[in-house]
Design a binder for these strands. Structure first.
Length: 427
RNA sequence: GCCGGGGUGUGGUAGAGGUAUCCCUUGGGACUGUGGAUCCCAAGACCUGGGUUCGAAUCCCAGCUCCGGCCCCA
């Protein structure tokens, strides 16, 4: 009986893994340059952590289980809640703002679709301790920079739930109804929304108008409805700062979140191509107050999370096989093998180096070197040993010559350095 | 939870009732100090379980799973 991979999970083969590592390295590097520090949280948590954040309904979509003492645990379905829990547990006293990033796998018990798996990876960043426009602008700019540096063609949609909420409150929507109304706005369910508003006896033409508008016109409209709005000022400051950063975005006040703790801006990034099918969103972010829910202070945070697998799906990486060197002992005689191992060890201090473990003949070893697309062969035989040299063979051109090990290492270093310059990596 | 389309060696395929084709792959051998060749040998598949039938990869049912979509999306 063959054991199959579990539904919605994936195996990553070397080519795919190499690509993922390249992307991951870029993401980390960018975050570090922006002065964010990495944190990591456990793969499973108390299930409560996630139900507090998202409601009991998500229990159906989590991998939950009980441990021996009966605690209800769950594989993390996302990373924002664990990060804020970590803040409350460990970092409350750290100087604000706290800037962190994270990368990790998450689990959701859903039907797999294109670019949607049961185990998936998220990369995200948070600023904890500020919900000022400056913090929001930085977070958006960071997400934008990631997209740019990865060379992904995407559009950034910016909204502001604070403003929408304010307008709704002014119009007479009660706190109790707010969540439901916001969810409908988020879904874009116009008819249902109008029905609900009418049933509450609330005039909603203006609101409907605003959430349909895009760009500056929405701001104009909002200004007419709520003359003295803090949120509006806040949004305008944010826009100003985004201009300073040179971030391109589409304003869309129809972006909402169904959950109450989102307080300020929200944004989403969509990939422009069609490689993701219906799952075009590659990033979501916003400003929220979650720490108090986990027993901490009421620190505001702003952050985002990228769907790493979707980034990997749309990221174009040039074929970049690493420069590999194969050491080829000519005969399986003790002295030749001994020399080969010594030479291999020297090469391994610098290069990706392969040595036969199949007891193969010279031609078989070269055939294998070819099969794994190695770049160079270092041939070691009695003739070379007698002269204290090795034969360095370029497997692409077939050229070869006898040189000393020092020369050999120097030449290979040249090649690897050039390869790194040319494509940025020798992974 | 729902809808549509698929599952044949590692991968790609042929096969439309008579236990499987070809390519590729892998291991061994020939050759033994120069590789993508050639030749020989070997290994490897009908998603699973029922049903129909003398006989099922093929037809029927159920399940699993993959691809795409709906719902959902913290």
């Amino acid at each position: 009986m063959r054991i199959e991979r579990v539904k919605g999970t994936r195996d990553f083969l070397p080519v795919e893994m190499r690509k993922r590592r390249v992307i991951e390295a870029k993401l980390r590097e960018i975050a570090e340059r922006w002065s964010y520090a990495e944190i990591s949280t456990p793969t499973f948590e108390l299930a409560e952590l996630f139900t507090i954040r998202s409601g009991e309904a998500i229990l159906d979509e989590m991998y939950g289980f009980r441990d021996r003492s009966g605690r209800h645990l769950a594989l993390r379905p996302e990373l924002t809640a664990p990060v804020i829990r970590l803040y409350v547990n460990e970092l409350k006293m750290a100087p604000k703002p706290i800037k962190v990033y994270y990368f990790g796998n998450c689990f959701r018990y859903e039907e797999p679709q294109r670019a949607r798996y049961r185990e998936f990876w998220q990369f995200g960043a948070e600023i904890i301790g500020s919900d000022r426009p400056e913090a929001e602008a930085e977070i958006i700019a960071l997400a934008y920079t990631i997209i740019e540096e990865l060379g992904i063609d995407a559009e950034l949609h910016l909204g502001h739930v604070g403003l929408i909420r304010e307008i709704l409150r002014d119009a007479g929507v009660s706190d109790a109804m707010m969540g439901r109304v916001m969810r409908l706005i988020d879904k874009g369910a116009r008819d249902e929304l109008m029905e609900l508003m009418q049933s509450m006896g609330i005039e909603c033409d203006a609101l409907m108008h605003i959430i349909d508008l895009r760009g500056g016109a929405a701001i104009e409209e909002a200004r007419h409805i709520t003359a003295h709005s803090e949120s509006l000022e806040h949004l305008e400051q944010l826009q100003q700062l985004l201009d300073y950063y040179g971030v391109g975005y589409d304003l869309n006040l129809g972006i909402a979140r169904g959950l109450d703790y989102y307080t300020g801006m929200v944004f989403e990034i969509y990939e422009s191509g069609d490689r993701l099918g219906a799952q075009r969103q590659i990033c979501g972010g916003g400003t929220y107050r979650l720490a108090a829910l986990f027993g901490g202070d009421d620190a505001p945070s702003t952050g985002f999370a990228f769907g790493f697998d979707r980034l990997a799906e749309v990221y174009h990486m040039e074929e970049n096989e690493p420069v590999r060197v194969v050491v080829v002992p000519v005969k399986n005689e003790p002295e030749v093998l001994q020399a080969a191992i010594r030479i291999t060890s020297r090469l391994r201090a610098h290069f990706n180096t392969y040595l036969d473990v199949m007891h193969r003949s010279l031609s078989e070893q070269l055939a294998y070197a070819n099969a794994i697309h190695a770049s160079y062969a270092v041939i070691v035989g009695k003739r070379e040993l007698a002269e204290g040299k090795v034969t360095l063979r370029d497997l692409e051109t077939g050229e070869q010559h006898k040189i000393t090990m020092d020369e050999c290492i120097a030449q290979l270093k040249d090649v690897v350095v050039n390869a790194v310059v040319k494509r940025g990596t020798n992974i």
